[in-house]
Amino acid sequence: MSIRGSVAVAGVEWSKLFAQLKVRLALGACVAGPFAFAAAMRLQSSLPTDTLFGRWVTDSGFAVPLVVLGFAALWVFPVFASIVGGDVFSAEDRYGTWSAVLTRSRSRAEVFAGKVVTALAFSATAVAVMAVSSIAAGALIIGRQPLINLSGVLLRPEQAAVSVVLAWVSVLAPVFGFTALAVLISIVTRSSVAGDGLPVLAALTMQLLAFVDSPAITRPLLMTSAFDAWHGFMTEPPYFKPLLYGTTVSFLYAVGCLAVAYRLMLRRDVGR
């Protein structure tokens, strides 16, 4: 397997992605969503007080990306992970194009690596676009006021900005974990419907297990727990244990899923 070959595959996949309407729409929603939310908060009198930082959302623009982050962790990130990860392999089954792809000068390993890199890069791009958009929406529509953290300490705007960026960076690990899970489902089922839907279902199930009275030891093993690890940045003093657990668990999910997926990719028969 050569890096050059994998990069060539990733380049082709990236071109295919941006030729698809659903991908452009998803990224457009990442840009427009936070602005719409911030504008709605500015215009309405009631606040989402039942969410973290919801009560501060009109007092500090830095609360906006954190409220968006809390909502996205529940609903949006698993969707980001599955939009491309759940479709990047099964789309070739749907269109019947595996024969065309695998009769070029690229090994299966290079095709696998290129597609996985594309899926991970898209997930990261979507998170980054949403982060930038929500920070910009908060700053432009609400303002760059100081932010009160979860311990009641007032953070200066520059401290708040650093904490917000770190909070968004911290969700990349579980997003990659869910992307890897979507890749595995895409390869196993050869179905884009399953590839898009099952990772979201898995995320909802994990969130449900976190809410119910499951044994305490199992909670850190749920990938969705890592989506809340950023709460530790917002306390005084900060704590990083959940981030460490979450990143490790996400890494193990990603490595496990990709190892199985790679094995299946090498062994599969194309057409019978």
Partner: peptide, 14 residues
């Protein structure tokens, strides 16, 4: 990978 300059048209092309 498939050797260079080997090409194929298999089944109904997609």
């Amino acid at each position: 990978p498939l050797p260079d300059r080997v090409a194929a048209l298999i089944d109904t092309p997609a």
